[in-house]
Design a protein around this nucleic acid. Sequence first.
DNA 1: ATGATATGCAACATGTAGGTTGCATAACAT
DNA 2: ATGTTATGCAACCTACATGTTGCATATCAT
Lengths: 132, 132
Amino acid sequence: MSRSRPHPLTSSPSARGGTAPRERDAVPVFVALGDATRLRLLRRLSTEGPLSITRLSHGAGVTRQAITRHLYALGSAGLVRHRKLGREQIWDLDAKRLEIARQYLDHVAAQWDAAAERLKAFVETQEETTEP
Amino acid sequence: MSRSRPHPLTSSPSARGGTAPRERDAVPVFVALGDATRLRLLRRLSTEGPLSITRLSHGAGVTRQAITRHLYALGSAGLVRHRKLGREQIWDLDAKRLEIARQYLDHVAAQWDAAAERLKAFVETQEETTEP
DNA sequence: ATGATATGCAACATGTAGGTTGCATAACAT
DNA sequence: ATGTTATGCAACCTACATGTTGCATATCAT
């Protein structure tokens, strides 16, 4: 959809100016995404907007404290952030870091695109040398 | 770069035909990607082509057994596969599953794009409205 | 002031990821 | 036949992620 359009929110420095995202930077993002509860939190935040811990805990299947930890996990990966609002703590997506994460994903996907095509070409020429 | 071009290998059904990838399916992929050693393995496979366990172990910084485990971890996420070739075990990327993984990433990225724009619009109009 | 609500903090249990070492086995080279 | 190379298998260790419970504290509503 909006895949190759330059984003207005962030000027996307690292991926464009020649500096490809390194594995080291991508790892914590993937780690953060590697949990069903956290993915659900991200989806809720991306569809319902900013929410408090308590609201995010409802229907989550785990305790509020567990949700709190997941939120901080997402936070240290730079995917979400929070602000205090009265006695509530409101969490929302961090657009800036989200853009960076998106570039990681794009980068990985592009790598795989290239690899897939190399693989295709490879298979076409190598098919018979391996096995009967 | 090759982001919006329809892929020849797989006709990208899920992003088009309505079946969006669920979190449950994406989680193991992200888990597999959430490790520096494994990302390096994927990168090597995507640039150097199919390699044996021993070759993948060289310069990896950990033991061969550790690499073996990482490879099987990537394998159970469907990102790589292996075949026996003499006394060697050759690992390579699994193009089919890779395409599915790529769609996950695209889906997530698209979600975030939309959320980012909603956020932008939200901030522009909501700056003063605190609570419902 | 008082009770209800939202969160913070800390201790604890448990599973498992990631790594190691040691030895066994299979396939190759000579 | 024999040594070398590539891998398999298993036991073991350690750190940490995930979840819990219990209690304390801050904020709100009345």
